[in-house]
Design a protein around this nucleic acid. Sequence first.
DNA 1: CGTGCAGTTGAGCAAATTCAACGCTTGTGG
DNA 2: CCACAAGCGTTGAATTTGCTCAACTGCACG
Lengths: 194, 194
Amino acid sequence: MMGVIMPFERNVEIYGEDEPADYLYKVVSGAVRTYKILADGRRQIGAFYLPGDVFGLEMGSAHTFSSEAIADSKVLVIKRSSVATLAASNNSVAQQLWTITARELRRVEARLMLLIKTAEERVAGFLLEMIKRSNDAGTVELPMSRQDIADYLGLTIETVSRTMTQLEHSAAIALPSSRRVVIRNRSALNRLNG
Amino acid sequence: MMGVIMPFERNVEIYGEDEPADYLYKVVSGAVRTYKILADGRRQIGAFYLPGDVFGLEMGSAHTFSSEAIADSKVLVIKRSSVATLAASNNSVAQQLWTITARELRRVEARLMLLIKTAEERVAGFLLEMIKRSNDAGTVELPMSRQDIADYLGLTIETVSRTMTQLEHSAAIALPSSRRVVIRNRSALNRLNG
DNA sequence: CGTGCAGTTGAGCAAATTCAACGCTTGTGG
DNA sequence: CCACAAGCGTTGAATTTGCTCAACTGCACG
């Protein structure tokens, strides 16, 4: 599929909320977050995107979230109109667009389930999600900060930090460094996942 | 579009989680909720569907939520395979399927934004959503119980009840009966909606 | 080195939950 | 027609959870 690979430095905006959605994007390397800022300054992270993930695909004409590179990243940028043209003639492309949206829906629904739970369950669920999306089943290198995780889970950085420490003390995980998580007891995490 | 209209009594299951998704559904009258039950008995409501809304449309082969009629309802039941056949030849049908999924995604994302907020903001946001989806802009008849609302917003019935009372005292709404809500001060609700 | 940023930890506080009691409405049976 | 039970909603008091404010640590970078 056509498109151009563009580099984005850490914390640089890829697109803004309400901007025309003329392009869609695929993470090649690095990581991306989408987010909204509320009137009072609170930020909600919409999703994290890792290499291979497509983001910025909209039905309407504008983006509903803003997006930024979490780390220095390379992103494949594809003109939406060219995809639309393809989809009009090629049924399997149309199918793929639907699949991407449906997968997105599944992920958001899974997160809904997280957000009704306690802090410990949210963090455990988040770690399991990150593990599942990474290649290595035993260790995850988190590309995002504690603030990003907090805004993703609807918690404060302090609560995220305390909960991580708590999970470490209960031997569910190990934290060789703050961004590196080793799963020590997956079933304990699964149990928390309700 | 073909299909059969079926009646469902209050609290009767329409389909269960993990059951084969051979049909999709459209609310004709009444109201429907989708939900999941967690291991410890907590329930999370996935969505409320009102007349005109389509639900139970899946990409995969199984339903990801269970669904029940909230009140006595009539539901148009459509065989999925017949829709799939149509979509294969007719591009605009395929487009419509995508649109339904995308709209669902938007709604869930909007709810994500709600779930990171305070109880008062969640309830205000819920009422605004219900008002927007109803015809009358000034009054809503809520088809669902306080327990349903609580499970939708990730709160307890007590907190929902107290918050409603509080909104009534602050003159944002009036409650002629527990299921009937009159909007008295929409801008106050919007302010809470952040 | 020192400065700044990210993360951790602690103490006190506010918000929502839990537990419990009570009121209102509805339906059922005597 | 009244009595009573059941379901739903509201209200109150005590408790718990996560938040706020604040101090402190470790680390990277100039």
